[in-house]
Amino acid sequence: MPVADHARGRPVAWFTQDRSGRKHKLRAAKAVNETGKCAVARCEDHRAGLSSLCRKHADRLKDIGDPVARVPTRNEIVIFEKAIDLYLATLPERRRREIATELDNRARVFQRPVTWAAMPSDMHRRLPQQARAEIIKAWLTKDAKDPRGFFKRALAIEGWAAVYFDGMPRYRRRFIATHATSWATTRGTPSKKLTRRSVKDDPTTVISTPNGWRHPKIETIWTEYQRAHISGPVKARLGQEALDAAHHAYGRGFWDNAVSTQDGQDMTLLDYTKLALRAAGLLPPA
């Protein structure tokens, strides 16, 4: 498959296509669109830009993948991940090896050269989403983050959404993908270590100098990290890749797999997980 001219070399050297001449067209389109009301039920605010949502809901869509849905809690996700582990333990050894082999293959495909891990200052405004996603993958590789954990988290959030998701159906898949990446990129975004220095007067102390009484100077040195912001669409792009890899390894319709409880009762893996959630007080009684 040929590589486009704008996507050769390191991702930091990629550029979006020339957008000159679009300014006036976009401005006119925004003016028309902003006369409409937000697509969220019972929201009377006007739309923002070219979005079908108002500014508040559009920002939330970018951040979490849905304008109204609540986000998963850590305890909820942990139970879904434990359900995945328990189910895998019930499978024949041959099937477990097949899943492990496919996860290894998908993890190798997902990883990128460490040299692609650009600094935040190098991520210019015309960098396309595809390039930003490639740079994030390189940073995950540089930070030695296992993509198989990313795939597993995406599968767990897919199960969570089948139980808890209360957002807009059209954004459900984007919500799952965005949250999977939010977990994977914690402390794994493009960053640069900076040393800061400040000098200020100490108002609690007075010393005598040839020029009279003065407050002594205090020098403070600290280290901070400049981190690059990862936009919602880039998170969704990466999360979708992780979800596709999980489906290839674990199989589609994973949460519909049949399991048997200790008392011989047959149910789907999703229903079994709901029992665990109720036992933990995270779901109301049936």
Rank of each mutant, 00 (worst) to 15 (best):
D146Y: 00
M123C: 04
R95A: 13
D104L: 06
R132T: 09
R108K: 10
R153E: 11
E102C: 07
R106F: 03
D122I: 05
A100G: 14
K152F: 10
I157T: 10
Q130I: 12
I99A: 14
V114I: 11
P128R: 06
A162C: 01
L88Q: 15
A107G: 03
M123E: 04
D143W: 05
A144F: 03
R108T: 11
R112E: 07
G159L: 04
L140C: 00
T101V: 14
E81H: 08
I84Y: 08
P92C: 03
I99R: 15
V109Y: 15
E81D: 02
A154M: 10
F150T: 07
T115H: 15
F150D: 08
D122N: 15
W139P: 03
A154W: 02
E81K: 08
R126Y: 12
A154E: 05
P120C: 00
R112Q: 09
M119A: 14
R153K: 12
R126E: 08
P113T: 01
P92S: 02
A161K: 05
A117V: 00
E134H: 13
K137A: 01
A154N: 05
A118F: 04
I136M: 14
E158K: 08
V109G: 12
A117E: 04
D122G: 07
V114S: 03
A89P: 01
D146H: 05
A138Q: 00
K145E: 02
A117D: 01
I79S: 12
K142F: 13
V114H: 09
Y87N: 09
A131T: 12
Q130C: 05
Q129T: 10
L91R: 04
E102N: 09
I135E: 00
E93V: 03
H124R: 10
Y87L: 12
E158Y: 03
R95P: 04
G159I: 01
A107H: 04
L86E: 07
Q129S: 07
R96K: 15
P128M: 09
I99Y: 14
G149F: 00
D143P: 07
W139Q: 06
Q130K: 05
W116I: 05
R95Y: 13
M123D: 06
S121T: 07
F110H: 11
D143Y: 06
R94M: 11
D85V: 15
D85E: 09
W160M: 01
L88K: 13
M119N: 15
P120V: 00
R132Q: 02
